[in-house]
Amino acid sequence: MIGTTPVAEGHTLTIEQAAEVLQCDTDTAAVRFNSGELPGVKFGRRWVIPAPAFFKRLNELALEEAERRRNQLAEERAAAAARAKSPQAISVREPAAARGRKRQPLPVLPQLPNAVSRGVPA
């Protein structure tokens, strides 16, 4: 039952009822019907939506979207596994001498005053 109108085999829905089922604004639902993504017939200014066709298409869309999400997840997992197995994935840096460069000498640091003279206990 949608709102106060029972939906049974062979009944039709209004755009408002379809929007209620989809939990969206009527304008959003109208865009989907206008694009042909959802089944409906426009008589004048009103949409008449066969309930069985609407729910059948809604089920098809849900299954298609679930399949698309599963495929995307599988592709992401395969790409991650390929990156993990790739020799380029392990970043090993060559020593400086192997790259043809000498190491820079460490800088000479100034001597710090004795800690006791600064009032810091040893």
Rank of each mutant, 00 (worst) to 15 (best):
F43S: 12
A80P: 00
R103N: 10
P50S: 12
R93E: 14
E67P: 03
A80R: 01
L61P: 06
A97F: 04
A80F: 03
I90S: 00
A53Q: 15
R69D: 03
G100S: 10
I90Q: 02
S86A: 14
K102T: 04
A53T: 08
A62Q: 13
A79P: 00
R99W: 06
L63A: 15
K56L: 13
R46N: 03
R57I: 03
R101L: 07
P50T: 10
E75R: 13
Q88I: 06
S91L: 15
P105L: 11
R103W: 11
A79M: 10
G44T: 02
R101S: 03
V41A: 09
K102F: 02
I49W: 08
R68C: 10
A97S: 10
A89C: 13
E75T: 05
F54L: 07
E65L: 11
A96G: 00
E94R: 13
F43E: 12
F43G: 02
R101V: 09
A80M: 04
G44S: 06
E75A: 05
L63V: 10
G40N: 04
K42R: 15
R93S: 09
N71W: 05
K56E: 11
L38D: 00
E65M: 14
S86N: 14
L58G: 01
L73V: 05
E94G: 07
K85C: 00
R99K: 14
Q104C: 10
R77N: 05
W47Q: 03
E76C: 11
R101Y: 09
A97L: 09
V48D: 08
F54W: 10
A98T: 06
R45Y: 08
P52A: 09
R46P: 00
K102M: 05
E75M: 12
A79Q: 15
L73T: 02
A78N: 07
A78T: 07
E60H: 04
E75C: 03
N71G: 12
I90H: 01
F54D: 02
Q88H: 02
V92S: 06
W47Y: 12
F43K: 15
Q104A: 11
L63E: 09
R83D: 02
R101N: 08
K85T: 01
P52R: 12
P105K: 15
L58V: 05
S86W: 05
A98D: 09
F55Y: 14
A89W: 14
A82K: 02
R93F: 13
P52E: 13
E65A: 13
A79I: 11
R46H: 13
I90P: 00
K42F: 07
A53G: 12
I49S: 05
A79F: 11
F55C: 05
V48Q: 14
A51K: 12
R68M: 09
E60F: 05
Q88F: 13
A89G: 15
A81P: 01
A96D: 07
N71A: 14
R57G: 01
A97M: 09
G100Q: 06
E67S: 07
E94V: 14
K102E: 01
R93I: 14
L73E: 04
L61I: 14
V41E: 12
P39E: 04
G100T: 08
A82E: 12
